[in-house]
Amino acid sequence: MPWIPRGMRNGIVTTRYPRHPDGYGPGFRGSVAVARDVADDVNLEPATQACPTGAIKVLEGRPDLDRGRCILCGRCTELYPQVFRFQSDFETSVIARRALVVPPDNEDRESLERARQELGGRVKSLRRSVHIRHVDAGSDGSEEWEIAALLSPVYDVQRLGVFFTASPKHADLLLVTGAGSAGMLGPLRETYDVMPVPKVVIAVGADAISGGLIGEGYATRGGIGRTLPVDVHVPGSPPSPFGILHGILVAVGLLPPADGGRSGRDAPDAGRTGNGPVIPNVRHHEAAP
């Protein structure tokens, strides 16, 4: 069988993420980082106006960028390269919706920690493997490609005990894409309802988080957050496969969310089950500079 030796070539291409850092070249638009300190005489108003999704707010001269809305168009980075900067970092998933706003608010640490502990406690019963069901709730079609890429030998998520399942009855994680189209809200809800507890919902992409550029219209609901309780938010338009994988690993408590701190499984009252996949050498991720 001539295919067999070719199959054996695949092994070497697989990423070693998350044990070892992996990613793209410096040009990849993973996320926008925002400078914390901005000179007083810089007027950022034009950036708020140029942003097509209203992701940028300026309060007392200090910019806030909501990654849940950002579609990575590059207008702000072009206008104010000293304030907004593309970085190839894809580990941008967070648990609480408000943690997508950068730079992070240090006052908020405690409540973010609580959200993390709550999720960590909930997922601790997940066994060695995690089963995922995907539902498209009005995507533009690109997110599906990026999720499907996880099954390629490059990402090979089975090596991490992550499997996709056709049946929601066997799913632990629900990956939802799309701006929340009116027609899909019913089927989405039904899928969620038949999932066993604990169920975890991951909103994949700016569209699922906020509606993205599609926003809220007669046929969309500005994301899926009003239909389902979202546990993990993966920003991007679309997020890269690594970004989605980061979101999945944050959901099961194996990696810390982008807002810093510890992973859910490290939370004091979450504990390790001993059954879950244990990934040593996890790189602790720093929040955007």
């Binding site: 199959g7 070539r9 695949n10 638009r29 890429a149 030998p153 496969p241």
Partner: peptide
Amino acid sequence: ARLTLHKERVQRLRAQLCGS
């Protein structure tokens, strides 16, 4: 497996060229 690998290579090339 082979073709998903190649498709991923194409997607990465596109990202290298323009960031997306």
